[in-house]
């Protein structure tokens, strides 16, 4: 009885060792990428990945990992080889890992003097962020002129969950370092920032409110397909002004009004960032050369965003469609 059981185990062992010994060859040109957690970033990433896979013969493992400091540290540690479309004004705590000027169109757009654990190159996409209200709200309330007037109208923005305060459909992902609540508090806006967890949840909430023609305040960025279908108006946050003491080491000491985080985000020259040690390996020379030359355009990303967001294509399909329709990307190849 036990003999038969033992032989069965033996059979299983034989089968499994058979399995291990017949294992195939490992891929030499293999990279690990973190896929961004918003649609625009996903598109930029997929553009890069499709170039690496289809044109340069790499195998890219795509890992789901929330963007933020954790991702930067993972890249510095070499767990992930590269990630796409970081927005510098969101990467406030992370840019200490960069130690090279960032170029756009041959001009330096930002200087860094950090540790150099991570290297970065511009993607070509330029981003802008703000808080927005629907146009119908502004039309119905002519005396609403911008963020200073939000408190006057807070009752219209209140929901079941926020009680007497108004609701801001805030930045959905904690790792993006938006500091929504902090911003509202410093600026004296009696609103509560609601963090919904994902871009899609934020859009679903906003779209639902828009369809019901309710007043709502939301965080969003451009380029984004939401603006194609819905007319939104920015509330004109004060222009970006950096604040040096607003770091974890300083226990998030803010600089008061008019300064980050009580200001708008900067105009963001977005960047792809990667582990320098991995990229300097000889087998990755082609990948490095590609990242240096890649220059994606807002127009192209916006077109693909509409295909994904409104026409229901997957990111892969949209990127493949764009790649088949143009030859612009040929110039980025080494």
């Amino acid at each position: 009885m036990n003999k038969s059981l033992f032989l069965k185990t033996f059979t299983a062992l034989i089968l499994s060792s058979f399995l291990v010994f017949s294992a195939g060859t490992a891929h030499a040109k293999r990279l690990t990428a973190a896929v961004a957690d918003w649609t625009g970033g996903e598109i930029t990433c997929q553009v890069a990945v499709s170039m690496l896979e289809q044109e340069l013969g790499y195998r890219v493992d795509r890992i789901e990992f929330a963007s933020g400091t954790g991702l930067w540290e993972a890249i510095a540690a070499g767990d992930i080889d590269f990630a796409c479309e970081s927005w510098p004004s969101y990467a406030e705590a992370d840019d200490v890992m960069l130690n090279e000027p960032l170029y756009y169109d041959g001009e330096v757009v930002q200087e860094y003097s950090g540790t150099g654990e991570v290297m970065a190159f511009t993607t070509g996409i330029i981003g802008a962020s703000d808080y927005y209200v629907p146009k119908y709200f502004v039309d119905a309330n002519p005396d609403f002129n911008g963020w200073e007037d939000l408190n006057k109208f807070k009752d219209q923005f209140a929901t079941v969950e926020t009680g007497s305060k108004g609701r801001l459909i805030g930045c959905p992902v904690a790792g993006w370092n938006c500091h929504d609540q902090k911003r509202l508090d410093i600026m004296g806006i009696d609103f509560e920032a609601v963090e919904l967890g994902t871009e899609v949840a934020l859009l679903a909430e906003a779209q639902g409110s828009y369809d019901r023609q309710e007043p709502f305040l939301m965080y969003l960025w451009e380029p984004h397909f939401f603006f194609g279908k819905n007319e939104m108006v920015g509330i004109g946050l004060p222009p970006h002004q950096a604040c040096d003491s607003f770091t974890e080491a300083n226990n998030w000491q803010d600089c008061g009004m008019g300064s980050w985080p009580a200001s708008n985000w900067a105009k963001d020259y977005t960047m792809n960032y990667m582990n320098p040690a991995t990229m300097q390996k000889p087998e990755n020379a082609e990948a490095l050369a590609f990242f240096k030359k890649m220059k994606f355009a807002n127009v192209d990303q916006a077109k693909m965003l509409v295909r994904v967001g409104d026409d229901g294509l997957s990111v892969e399909e949209a990127v493949q469609e764009w790649k088949d329709s143009t030859n612009d990307w040929q110039a980025w190849l080494p």
């Binding site: 963007s67 930067w72 540290e73 992902v173 904690a174 790792g175 370092n177 609601v194 963090e195 967890g197």
Partner: peptide, 17 residues
Amino acid sequence: IGGKGLGLEVFNGLARS
């Protein structure tokens, strides 16, 4: 999906390293 409390702290802590 929008839960609060300690779970959110874990998430935020991980995301901010």
